[in-house]
Design a binder for these strands. Structure first.
Length: 504
DNA sequence: GCTAGGCGACA
DNA sequence: AATTGTCGCCTAGCC
């Protein structure tokens, strides 16, 4: 089954979770159309802000549809529940897979509740961050203008290109479709190979401008007045692999990698001093799924023994003992581990690690020599996808991959990469969705005192009463680690604090 | 106001 | 040609 959309439409506007859950979940106090019709617009239901935004202040029952758009056995299948009718006539319920009834439909209520819960933002902290970032940006801009000798729009790649390549005479490192690239890789290359301080200044400017414009200044505007919290959307059909996506605002790309970016996470806080934010992360879930699928002896063994997988791979590939692995060897192994999941080539690995292509090829060759099961899994994924036309995840989610039928070599290579990646990435999404449903069930039945706030693909963020956090942590770990039965253990790391930046 | 392109944040 | 999947900000050009 290919899931395209789950949602309901009210007055022609689509809502994917909140309203659908009100109607579909009999346990919900706001279950049913009566509730919806009588109080839709007067209650504390977040998606209603969209309706109000469209100037709509009343609806009629006839305007409510629940719609499911899928593709099943190659046929388009649109289902509509209109005014409580159960199923559209054109398809029998038994045709729908367990994935749909046992995972996607129950998840609707989970997502609805996450959207309803929202998260508290420390607006004052962001305001002070904005001020200091604004000052740094102003000073960077001054320095850039002084160096260049005139003002220009630093935010414009086109104008920046003129400055860098025409006025400063710097080397054109790579082209974009329409011109000369000024991306971070290019600027770093230029910074390394010239004495000109401009590329470095632009890099600093870009980092700050990105953080300030996209997060520090934008997030406070998204605080919903009635609740004082941020209520993002978690889109159930946003990603073709089965992952969720998040928007308005996107809470799945909050910075963490750089020190400055990480500061933004301090602004995501628990509702009060009696609560904490708890983050629970799957450790290397995609690699574990790879091990589960390919049953490679060495890979499975490393996970069963609880080894640091990147270190274990580095030891294997370099033929050294675990304790003799150097930091460089480990980070190369880490890059290969991720590269394998994406179908990275020796060329790509060499570029990302900054090593000769021959060296990268030798590393990859040795990798497949040590883990022959992985090679077989990759070949098998591609062969099956070629035969059936789709890649399939652990719960039976299918992604059609027509690229493998193409006569274009690049298209075929792309099809081969996504055939493998979809199985791994999509199965990880399946695992996470199962865990979310199980945890939500515990919350609804009073076994677990927690609110689920955010999902970031392999991480869940909860708000939990400080007094119960130890107990809750155990329960959440238990549910996540046993979301689906696998032949390798799933491991979950948990941390908590009053904010989303610190932990434990 | 809309769209495309470049860029960059995350897993 | 060369690594998967997203969303959003900004510029630039067009209506």
């Amino acid at each position: 089954m290919v899931l395209r959309q789950i949602g309901i439409e009210v007055a022609g506007l689509a809502f994917d979770t909140m309203l659908a859950s009100l109607l579909l979940n009999p346990a919900s106090p706001s279950h049913g159309l009566d509730y919806l019709a009588s109080s839709l617009l007067q209650h504390d239901m977040i998606p209603i802000k969209d309706l109000i935004g469209k100037g709509k202040n009343q609806i009629t029952m006839a305007e409510v549809d629940i719609a499911v758009s899928t593709e099943y056995a190659g046929e388009d299948a649109d289902f509509t529940w209109r005014l409580g009718q159960l199923l559209a006539p054109q398809m029998d319920k038994s045709d729908l897979s367990a994935l749909f009834y046992e995972t996607e439909m129950p998840l609707v209520s989970v997502l609805a509740e996450m959207e309803h819960n929202g998260i508290t933002l420390d607006v004052k902290l962001l305001a002070s961050l904005s001020e200091s970032m604004g000052a740094s940006l102003a000073s960077l801009t001054e320095n850039i203008y002084a160096l260049v000798g005139h003002e220009f729009n630093v935010d414009s790649p086109k104008q920046l290109g003129v400055v860098l390549f025409d006025e400063m005479g710097l080397r054109v490192v790579k082209k974009t479709r329409t011109g000369r690239s000024t991306d971070a890789d290019t600027l770093q290359t230029l910074a390394d190979e010239t004495d000109n301080p401009l590329p470095k200044l632009i890099l600093e400017y870009r980092e700050l401008a990105k953080l300030k414009n996209t997060y520090v200044d934008a997030l406070p505007k998204m605080v919903f007045p009635r609740t004082g919290r941020i209520h993002a959307s978690f889109n159930q059909t946003g990603a073709i692999t089965g992952r969720l996506s998040s928007s308005d605002p996107n809470l799945q790309n909050i910075p963490i990698r750089t020190e400055t970016g990480r500061k933004i996470r301090y602004a995501f806080i628990a509702c009060d001093a009696q609560h904490v934010l708890l983050a629970a992360d799957y450790s290397q879930v995609e690699l574990r799924l790879l091990a589960h699928f390919c049953q490679d002896q060495a890979l499975v063994k490393a996970f069963l023994e609880g080894q640091d997988i990147h270190r274990a791979v580095a030891a294997q590939v370099n033929g050294v003992a675990l304790e003799d692995v150097t930091p460089e060897q480990r980070s190369a192994a880490k890059a290969v581990n991720f590269g394998i999941i994406y179908g990275q080539s020796a060329f790509g690995l060499a570029k990302s690690l900054g090593i000769p292509q021959g060296e990268a090829k030798a590393f990859i060759d040795m990798y497949f020599m040590r883990y022959p099961g992985i090679r077989m899994f990759i070949d098998d994924c591609i062969a099956r996808t070629k035969k059936t036309g789709y890649a399939e995840t652990i719960l039976g989610r299918r992604r059609p991959i027509p690229e493998l039928q193409s006569r274009n070599r690049n298209q075929i290579a792309f099809g081969e990469r996504i055939a493998v990646n979809t199985v791994v990435q999509g199965s990880a999404a399946d695992v996470m969705k199962r865990a979310m449903i199980d945890i939500h069930h515990d919350i609804k039945t009073g076994r677990l005192d927690a609110n689920m706030l955010i999902q970031v693909h392999d991480e869940l963020v909860f708000e939990i009463p400080q007094a119960f956090v130890e107990k809750a942590s155990q329960q959440i770990r238990e549910r996540m680690e046993n979301a689906l039965p696998l032949s390798v253990p799933l491991v979950v790391d948990i941390a908590w604090a009053n904010n989303w930046a610190e932990g434990k």
